[in-house]
Design a protein around this nucleic acid. Structure first.
Lengths: 324, 324
DNA sequence: TCCGCCCCTGTGAACGTTCACAGAACCATC
DNA sequence: GATGGTTCTGTGAACGTTCACAGGGGCGGA
């Protein structure tokens, strides 16, 4: 490359990296050589000396073995990839399901192969988080890391307020006995949505009216049956995810309850599933695109040596369809 | 590291790479130093000399601007990441939606930053394919690349036979006038499923009974309305994707047709949506997990200097639920 | 004894960058 | 005409590996 452009390595490097101390002649020569030879800098060589890789890792913390179909993941990944690409940083995906996976992730990061980490669906007490912290690598999460909110900055939808919106709406519709199906309580979506539910209902949110699901359709189905057994006279239910809500709808239908006449059902996520159920699901939309954008922004700031950025919590929106 | 283990660089390198010409004493010393110092090889330095990166790129060819929610993508990505991880190769994600994206992908690959490419949802005539071919980089596709079947090896579900299974089933159920809603015809799923449909129906598959959708819920809805207008007496419809089928169900309900009594509906994919509709969707399951596994296997073979592997086409399975 | 062959080891060079440094060329000022 | 400051350039060293090569020791056979 230095040969092709007729200037020294140093000058090529400077020209390519926008150093001001390069004559216009030299700059032009380099530019010409670049297009002529189709030259692309070798990131490996560069990383070797700069200690920067131009890469961030997105770690998908998959609790348990089962790969639950998180509809939001798709969008988060695409938006993040795009955003990062415009800054010429590559995104490598890693799945951290079991100890072996986690060990690999840590090894990869300790090898200095990435400048930062994007955490996805991390649940409370994940051993990876501790390992990550001791690496002192810039890390940002999509959705709070329960118990580490003050340590790992995050961007997330306002789960709690979203749950309040939905619960309030059910109350306004005249529902008197409202139950909820939560997600796993070691996830922010599980915990915060339950809290929002309780915020609105206060003492009326009795234990009898709270069932725990696992974000799967079948979990929602089972939880709904359980609730109907415990409180046959319930007339509203706030379900912590659309997929579980789809299961709940099936259970209600099976038990001969009409939706929304007998029981109003509210979901959460506004995923593709919500628009496919019958009746169509009234739900809460999360600004996932912005969550991804903000997460990426925060991570890049952190990598560029910025202060620990403030976490961002973004507003949700009630989407009224047919089920409530 | 050489210092920590008390042997020379060369010996460390040999020990780490499993060269047989290393004494057990030296091997042990290196091993000890590795755990003591928490040493991890620097891939950059290694790549610099070996010209191998231990990285493959998964390119998501996203036609148009809209990011359509491909439910299969999620699974494909997870399985591929996992499989590759066991061989210690990293997966970097790239999205190729517009020309700028494509240019970035090509630049990245030309920079020699990856050993191979995994193509996803590539549609006929994608300019990226030509660029990729001229790079002469190992490439394998998930799902055939229309028009390049002989050039780019792939693993895919047997779309055509799957469509036959479903169409045959509808015929066996006594349906006399069966229509279809296809995906975009520049995708293998769109084209092959239509062909399977025609295989079974022969001359009964008239143009009037074929409507084209775009893999979205709304596309399915609109196509269904169109079909009902063209052929009000139809009593069965094979829809080329579950999401479109969900839309079709909504259209049928709106028009007062009962499913499956008046019209039987069959989907394709067996995605989460299929288990959330009412009635539950009878559909065709694709062995996506195996598709991902095979794709990865083929790519690794190719990278290891193997011959161009045979493409694999994997059997589908009819999943009978309620809608047909 | 000497030769040749295995095992094993250390060393120099190379990979393609960036960085720090030294210095050349030019201009302005004293 | 010396001095000092800009602006620009080339050069050597370094980053952490792998690879090819040379060679030391041990052992068996001629």
């Amino acid at each position: 490359m230095a040969r092709a452009s007729g200037v020294s390595r140093g000058t090529v490097s400077r020209a390519l990296n926008g150093d001001p101390y390069v004559s216009t002649a030299a700059r032009a020569a380099v530019q010409r050589a670049v297009v002529e030879t189709g030259y692309v800098v070798n990131r490996n060589a560069r990383s070797l000396v700069t200690q920067r890789t131009g890469t961030v890792v997105m770690v998908l913390c998959e609790p348990q073995e089962k790969l639950f179909e998180d509809p939001s993941f798709n969008l988060l990944m695409r938006v993040a990839t795009r955003r990062l690409a415009t800054k010429d940083v590559a995104l490598v995906m890693m799945v951290a399901g079991d100890d072996g996976d986690r060990e690999r992730v840590v090894r990869y990061l300790r090898g200095g192969h990435a400048d930062g980490v994007l955490l996805l669906s991390t649940h409370a007490g994940d051993p990876l988080v501790g390992a990550l912290e001791s690496l002192a690598l810039p890390a940002v999460a999509c959705g709070a890391v329960l118990g580490r909110e003050g340590v790992i900055p995050y961007a997330a939808a306002d789960d709690r307020e979203g749950a309040r919106q939905m619960t309030r709406y059910l109350v306004e519709q005249g529902r008197r006995k409202i139950a909820t199906i939560t997600g796993p309580l070691d996830t922010p979506g599980g915990l915060n949505r339950l809290e929002g539910f309780c915020d609105v209902l206060g003492r009326k949110a009795t234990k009898k009216l709270i069932a725990q699901g696992d974000y799967t359709r079948h979990g929602g189905y089972a939880a709904m049956l359980e609730l109907l057994k415990r409180a046959p006279d319930l007339d509203g239910v706030f379900v912590g995810s659309d997929l579980m809500a789809a299961g709940a709808l099936a259970a209600l239908r099976e038990q001969g309850r009409r939706v929304p006449e007998d029981v109003a059902v509210g979901g959460f996520d506004d995923s593709a599933v919500a628009a496919s159920t019958h009746p169509l699901l009234t739900t809460v939309r999360q600004p996932l695109e912005r969550v991804a954008q903000e997460t990426v922004r925060m991570l890049l700031e952190l990598i560029d040596g910025g202060e620990r950025p403030e976490s961002v919590v973004l507003p949700t929106e009630l989407v009224i369809r047919e089920s409530a």
